[in-house]
Design a protein around this nucleic acid. Structure first.
Length: 277
DNA sequence: ATGGTTGCCCGCAGAACGCA
DNA sequence: TGCGTTCTGCGGGCAACCAT
């Protein structure tokens, strides 16, 4: 269960009980953000966010608009983040941490082009409270424009995208989807640090390959439990679309969550352990 | 002055590699 | 499996250096 959900449910419990009229309920940042996102998506209904019940079709998080699910978690940082990363490892200028947005998509396939769509977008950024991980999942194809629109609100002109092979895969894919949805494409103007290349420079010939899963296991010591391979993600989503269980989709969500967390940790690692010249 | 060798830079083409 | 990026190797051009 997500941290956000627990907080939502706690608030719900609070609201259900008797409370003095004079006591002001503090603004919950998650609910506040959901309200803002709904405003941006021009959702008119004023009902409270739909609270997830425990059924087999559940997707963790809050349903922003029909078919678009949003989940946010804030993870405490186990290390202190510098104000800026020395960009040497990526052959770039110093990278302000506040501008970094680690992101990863889960898609319906590898083929690229117009036939492949992203059904999940995960992003992580460093906040004073910790590493904030936000994820969007669509439960039907009609929700894709709303997902793209929401993701765009996470970007600003100073955003520095950070991904693993995202320059070649995720970003072009998203750009295509924005164009197909007739939305303004927000990615092209942004700086983009792709950790694949500095990782290769640093670890080529050291490990069997430079896949993200290999690097996180061998370098960061992360061992994933019950991880769903990326190749099974399209099937998990399509199975859900056809009325199947959300069990596999939840594992995709966990996989995507771990991916963006790993990106953040890898960036910090490469900053400390720069590539060979 | 001339010719040969060496090293560097640049552009190009193909290979390698990652993504789900 | 397709795609985009980076890396790598290669060859050409050029300058510097040295020997004759």
């Amino acid at each position: 269960m997500s941290v956000s959900l627990e907080r939502l449910q706690a608030l719900r419990r609070q609201s259900g009980g008797p409370k003095p009229a004079s006591v002001a309920v503090p603004v919950d940042p998650v609910l506040d953000q959901v309200a803002k996102l709904r405003g941006l998506l021009r959702v008119k209904r004023s009902s409270a966010p739909r609270i997830v019940q425990s059924t087999d079709r559940d997707i963790p998080g809050v349903e922003l608009v029909p078919g678009l699910w949003f989940r946010e978690q804030v993870l405490p940082l186990d290390v202190s983040w510098p104000q800026a990363l020395d960009g040497t490892f990526a052959r770039s200028e110093p990278i302000p941490s506040a501008d970094l947005l680690f992101f990863d998509t889960e898609t319906t396939g590898l083929a690229g082009g117009t036939g492949t769509r992203a059904f999940m977008v995960g992003a992580a950024d460093v906040t004073p409270a910790g590493l904030r991980v936000r994820q969007l999942t669509i439960a039907n194809t009609a929700a894709e424009p709303a997902m793209l629109e929401t993701f765009q609100t996470w970007l600003s002109p100073s955003t520095i995208l950070c991904s693993y092979n995202g320059r070649s895969y995720d970003a072009p894919l998203l750009k295509t989807r924005y164009r197909l949805m007739r939305q303004q494409e927000p990615l092209s103007g942004l700086a983009h640090v792709d950790l694949l290349y500095p990782t290769r420079r640093r670890y080529r010939g050291v490990f069997e390959n430079c896949r993200l899963a290999t690097i996180e296991r061998r370098v960061l010591g992360i061992v994933r439990e019950d991880d769903l391979p990326g190749s099974e993600a399209p099937g998990a989503w399509l199975g859900y679309l056809r009325g199947g269980s959300s069990q596999l989709l939840k594992r995709v969500l966990a996989h995507n969550h771990q991916d963006v967390v790993t990106l953040a940790r890898l960036a910090l690692h490469l900053e400390v352990q720069p590539c060979s010249p």
